[in-house]
């Protein structure tokens, strides 16, 4: 792989991760949000694999394939089943409306670039320059957690945060050891399963995925 192709593909994939995060803020249909998450997983896997190919690191390529399996296929399938319980469920009334959310996402991205100047100057590689994108994706995910009402959007938000962290890890260290990545992926998988059960329980008890209902648990 030539240097320019490597730079282009890596930049494209990283940008796709951020773009997917922003798209989850834009879309209202829960089904579409879950599909966007799958695309983001695939982009993340692409980042790992490309770095692995470039560094001739077989471990990283395996990690990339694992990420593809877990985050682009298995996890979206699991969440998709929750959505199927209520196919018409939409993120109708987020705490911050969609245009304002998009502006906030832009501000957060700006903040991520401003805050990581010193980090990017420390790692002057192609991958290193892309670190702010990972941080931005994470912040956008966090923002989704804070402003979206539905339980499914919350699960997706957590996964966005996780994907952002993973992207920073791939870009900054040229890949974490296989074992660590395996552990992190399993954790995420487990968290998704637990959250899925919780969300379904919530729906059967409270009649909706709306998180605001939980305020009633407060005495």
């Amino acid at each position: 792989m030539s240097a320019s192709t490597y730079t282009n593909v890596l930049g494209l994939a990283a940008a796709a991760v951020l773009l997917c995060a922003v798209v989850t803020l834009w879309r209202r249909s829960l089904g579409a949000i879950v599909r966007t998450l799958a695309v983001q997983g695939a982009a993340l896997a692409c980042v790992a694999t490309v770095i692995g190919l470039h560094e001739h690191d077989v471990g990283l390529i395996v990690v990339g394939l694992l990420v593809l399996g877990a985050k682009a296929v298995v996890v979206p399938l699991l969440i998709g089943r929750v959505v199927r319980h209520d196919p018409n469920s939409r993120e109708t009334d987020p705490l911050v409306n969609v245009p304002a959310s998009l502006v906030a996402a832009g501000a957060l991205t700006f903040l991520a670039f401003a805050a990581t100047r010193s980090v990017t100057s420390l790692v002057p590689t192609t991958a290193g320059r892309l670190i702010p994108i990972g941080l931005a994706a994470m912040l956008v995910g966090f923002f989704a957690l804070v402003t979206r009402r539905k339980a499914v959007s919350q699960i997706v938000g957590i996964l966005l945060v996780d994907n952002g962290v993973a992207l920073v890890a791939f870009l900054a260290t040229a890949g974490v050891p296989l074992l660590v990545e395996l552990g992190a992926s399993l954790d995420v998988l487990l968290a998704v399963i637990v959250l899925r059960v919780l969300a379904i329980q919530m729906r059967s008890r409270l009649g909706s995925f709306d998180l605001d209902q939980l305020t009633e648990l407060h005495d």
């Binding site: 705490l95 957060l108 903040l111 991520a112 401003a114 805050a115 912040l139 966090f142 923002f143 957690l145 804070v146 402003t147 009402r149 919350q154 998180l211 605001d212 939980l214 305020t215 009633e216 648990l217 407060h218």
Partner: peptide, 18 residues
């Protein structure tokens, strides 16, 4: 008791730090 409020505390702290 609002989960969103608790999450917002976390995001707010993170943004201030950044």
């Amino acid at each position: 008791g609002s989960v969103h409020r608790y999450l917002a505390y976390g995001l707010g702290a993170l943004v201030i730090l950044l």
